[in-house]
């Protein structure tokens, strides 16, 4: 994408759109694939003193293709009493939110999908769409486990949407813009008490917000310790129980791609996005290096997500609601107040 940047401006609108859609698909699917292989197959296996897949390809690197092939071959089963349309559409709705989410994430000064002033506002808005998909899956399956899972997921996702958004507001106040590019530039050009060696990644000033964002993100992704909706030891697989084959694969991709995309958003908001200290952020080379920097940050953040996921037991439904409403939201609100006061004061 980056090499052709100068050409991009000269292309017709539909050609530009084509390139951006292609790049978006690649960004979501490639990142999801990388994460699944690197974290789920390998690092998590190492945490459990095992090797993970080793047979398909060198060190099992082609295992993912084998898995996808397996899922595609499987029969697409509909439960007899399922609401067929709702059941069939649910995974696409879940996946849609992921693909809509990725468009706001910038990868370099000119490497962006859409550059809108609404930026993070749009991201937070579209991330809620997955709730509808999950509720559709839970209801449409006509299964008690799915239904309990779907209802739990809905309650949880709505509860954790709030701290997620409130955590972001602190960053928005500090950056003074909701544009994702703007946030990156604000961090790149910022300074810590006058020292601008590494810019000012907001994790330093918004540490509390970062923590809240990561916890809420974990909950939004329904990863342990917040995986009550899936809870394989009691609800079999929650809202995904009745799915098989292709549609299960979509849920699966959705889960891991969303982990990647949310991490990308977190990287932009708190870790400085694509900029490298010492290189002029408007330099054309950043269009090549930027996406790589982003990838490294995404992998780092998702590692934390998976690390926690495979270490912690899960909260009970009422406990995680308590955590959201009684701890995270007041904390996030306090963070906003403090940030606002400091913003006005300095």
């Amino acid at each position: 994408m980056s090499a052709s940047l100068n050409i991009i401006g000269e292309l017709a609108y539909w050609q530009q759109t084509g390139i951006r859609v292609g790049a978006g698909l690649a960004a979501v699917l490639l990142i999801a694939g990388t994460l699944v292989y690197l974290h789920l197959f390998k690092l998590v296996s190492f945490m459990q003193s095992r090797l993970g897949p080793m047979e398909a390809g060198p060190f099992g690197s082609l295992q993912l293709l084998a898995e996808v092939g397996k899922f595609l071959q499987k029969e697409d089963i509909f439960p007899r009493k399922a609401d067929r349309f709702v059941f069939a559409a649910a995974p696409f709705v879940v996946l849609m939110s992921t693909f809509l989410l990725v468009v706001v994430v910038p990868g370099g000064p000119d490497a962006w999908f859409i550059d809108t002033e609404l930026g993070i506002y749009l991201a937070m808005a579209v991330s809620s769409i997955s709730v509808i998909g999950i509720l559709m899956a839970g209801w449409g399956s006509a299964s008690k486990y799915s239904m309990l899972g779907g209802l739990r997921a809905t309650g949880q996702l709505i509860a954790y949407e709030l701290p997620l958004i409130l955590a972001v507001i602190g960053v928005v106040i500090q950056a003074g813009t909701m544009n994702m590019q703007g946030i990156v530039f604000a961090q790149a050009e910022g300074s810590i008490f006058g020292w601008d060696g590494i810019g000012n990644p907001y994790i330093l000033t918004q540490g509390v917000a970062f923590l809240i964002f990561m916890i809420a993100m974990q909950a939004e992704l329904t990863q342990a310790p917040f995986d009550m909706p899936i809870a394989e030891s009691e609800l079999v697989s929650g809202y995904m129980t009745e799915y098989s084959g292709m549609r299960f694969l979509l849920f699966f991709i959705g889960e891991f791609a969303t982990a990647g995309v949310f991490s990308a958003v977190a990287a932009v908001l708190f870790l400085g996005g694509w900029y490298i200290p010492g290189i002029d952020p408007n330099d054309n080379i950043m269009n090549v290096l930027g996406p790589l920097v982003m990838l490294v940050k995404i992998v780092g953040l998702t590692f934390v997500v998976f690390w926690a996921r495979f270490t912690f037991p899960r909260f009970r439904e009422d406990q995680l609601q308590k955590l959201a409403w009684k701890v995270l939201i007041p904390l996030a609100l306090a963070n906003i107040v403090v940030t606002g006061i400091l913003k006005v004061a300095f």
């Binding site: 945490m47 459990q48 003193s49 095992r50 342990a224 310790p225 995986d227 809870a231 030891s233 495979f310 270490t311 912690f312 037991p313 899960r314």
Partner: peptide, 14 residues
């Protein structure tokens, strides 16, 4: 495992 942490089960079998 029953309360949701996957890794202890692997440690146990190991």
């Amino acid at each position: 495992l029953q309360v949701g942490a996957v890794t202890p089960a692997f440690f146990a079998f190991r």
